[in-house]
Design a protein around this nucleic acid. Structure first.
Lengths: 108, 108
DNA sequence: ACTTACAGTAAGTATTAGCTTACAGTCTCC
DNA sequence: GGAGACTGTAAGCTAATACTTACTGTAAGT
């Protein structure tokens, strides 16, 4: 639904690796499961979490279900990060300036 | 130690709010705890996780311990996101081109 | 030195979450 | 329409985790 679930979704190592695999191209559930040490249902559950977080989309091809990365989910995370990246830099800058005005009250 | 822990750290709602609060300026543990519905030790534990993830740093001022955002942690997350943002766009583009070559094999 | 304030740690608990196996459902091919 | 392939869901178990209270430790003020 938003970046909130996205962070939690990518917090799990296995789930993040599944996502990274999908970032290189769409794949079916079975194909992904073959490359991981967990069972196929586990992969299916991970994909559900990623889907709910807006990070992937699925499309049915016969009985196969192909998953691919949803760029919009990544975009929301980037927006959040940029927002607090700016805030952090501003806070850091303001802090430095405050320190300078304290150590050099009159400019010397 | 890297972006890996950072995603998990920001996955928890309370911990993410603590981080967001710090992004607006450095604060002590007690000051943060006053603004949250959880106990002070809980905030302290959250700050430890954020610190281990490289998202915040701490500095002692007397008995008070002031926490502030560590931009390098955010930077690593941004790098990871940008990397897979590019990969996702490339995969998406390659997919579109493949679709076009299938629907229009001879170029019309 | 004693008291007070501030913060980290330990121990314990309850909820969450990731994993498994078993089952149900859908599409294709014969 | 029956068999096989592919996937989602349910139920259950175990491990992780977020929270609490109690305590330990350190620095400042009197």
């Amino acid at each position: 639904m938003s970046y909130r679930n996205a962070f939690a979704a990518l917090g799990d190592p296995t789930r993040r690796k599944v996502f990274e695999r999908l970032a290189h191209g769409p794949r079916s559930v079975g194909e992904i499961a073959k490359d991981f040490p967990v069972s196929r249902p586990a992969v299916s559950q991970h994909l559900k979490v990623l889907k709910d977080a807006g990070l992937v989309t699925d499309q049915a091809h016969g009985t196969r279900r192909v998953y691919r990365v949803d760029p919009s989910g990544l975009g929301q995370m980037r927006a959040w990060l940029d927002q607090f990246w700016e805030a952090a830099l501003l806070a850091f800058q303001a802090e430095v300036e405050r320190d300078e005005s304290e150590t050099e009250p009159g400019g010397d």
